[in-house]
């Protein structure tokens, strides 16, 4: 029955099969593929799209007894409660400062690192530097934070040991000062991820046509000039895509690391939207699922808008975006 109705030509590439096939016939002949896709499809719907549907509780006053559908609608009350609550002026600025600081520092440093590494003479040394600088990326957040706090301990850590070896005095306790949280967060990320994040730029630089370099050398360009006028332009497209992705994730600033670093000394600086979402929703004495969901949704929406804006901006400026 359907065979006759669906006289639509398949939009897919026909793989060299010359005769026309109807869409239905083609789908039917690919039944094994659809069978394979069944499980992944069920998975993504249940574990990604059902929770998105669950976002409706942001507009309800959820209580366990009535469930998601039975709980009463309250419109934007949860959002208003967040905007007017006493945590709003704390968590929103903290998130923005941390996100902006991270972006400004951790975006350009891998690019500079890749440019320098690419210009470094000596293949072996290059390889050694590259391999060693990848390693910290594979350290877990917990171990990373444990390491950070252990090494920066002003009495027993490496920092304390070096400080007193040089000056003879006891080091000041940099961990006790809450406002150092931002610096610790961002610069430990530089330590951990620069090598890894540089991979893509290093690979892009390896693809640069060597004839360009040779021609420029003949014309008397110095190595530094070649970096500026050959290497930099050649990684700009890659960099702009990475920037869009970075901006599109800027508000997703890591819950795991901020939460792991959090302690009573830095709480005023380290309480960000995602850690607040966790506390309101799951960790406080009286949890509020609806409020927590609303705060999380607020964050996701801002993030998504930033992504679209960055993508739009990139398309306007350079003609390329991620979608």
């Amino acid at each position: 029955m359907a065979k006759k109705k669906n006289q639509v030509q398949s939009p897919a590439v026909n793989l060299g099969v010359q005769h026309r096939k109807t869409l239905w016939k083609q789908m039917k002949s690919r039944w094994q593929i659809y069978l394979l896709l069944l499980l992944p499809l069920i998975y993504i719907i249940i574990f990604a799209y059902v929770p998105m549907g669950g976002l409706i509780i942001a507009f309800k006053d959820y209580n366990f007894r009535d469930g998601i559908f039975g709980s009463p609608w309250v419109g934007f009350d949860n959002f208003i409660e967040f905007f007017t609550g006493r945590y709003f002026p704390v968590v929103v600025p903290n998130t923005i400062i941390l996100a902006a600081y991270s972006l400004v520092v951790t975006f350009p440093i891998p690019i500079i690192f890749a440019l320098l590494l690419n210009a470094l003479p000596g293949r072996k040394y290059k390889k050694v530097i590259q391999t060693v600088t990848y390693i910290p990326h594979f350290i877990s957040v917990i171990v990373m934070v444990g390491l950070l706090y252990q090494i920066l301990n002003y009495r027993t850590g490496l920092y304390g040991a070096i400080y007193s070896a040089i000056t003879g005095a006891t080091a000041p306790d940099i961990l006790a000062k809450g406002s150092n949280f931002y610096h610790l967060y961002v610069w430990s990320a530089v330590w951990q991820s620069t090598g890894y994040n540089a991979i893509i730029y290093i690979a892009a630089l390896a693809g640069v046509d060597q004839e360009l370099h040779e021609a420029a050398t003949i014309d008397g360009a110095s190595r530094f000039q070649r970096v500026l006028y050959i290497d930099v332009p050649s990684i700009l497209p890659t960099a702009s895509i990475m920037l869009i992705l970075a901006i599109g994730n800027v508000m997703n600033i890591g819950f795991e690391k901020a939460f792991a670093m959090q302690n009573s000394l830095n709480m005023n600086y380290s309480e960000i939207i995602s850690t607040y979402v966790y506390k309101v929703g799951l960790a406080m004495g009286i949890t509020d699922f609806s409020l927590s969901t609303a705060v999380g949704m607020f964050n996701s929406v801002i993030n998504f808008v930033l992504l679209l804006t960055a993508n739009w901006g990139s398309k306007k400026l350079s003609g390329s975006g991620i979608f």
Binding site: A48, P51, M52, G54, I57, I68, V277, S292, F304
Partner: peptide
């Protein structure tokens, strides 16, 4: 359907539920 989940998700509480 898969790609979209890279940029948007239900968040902590809906997933927990």
């Amino acid at each position: 359907l898969f790609t979209f989940t890279m940029f948007f998700n239900g968040g902590m509480i809906p997933t927990y539920m």
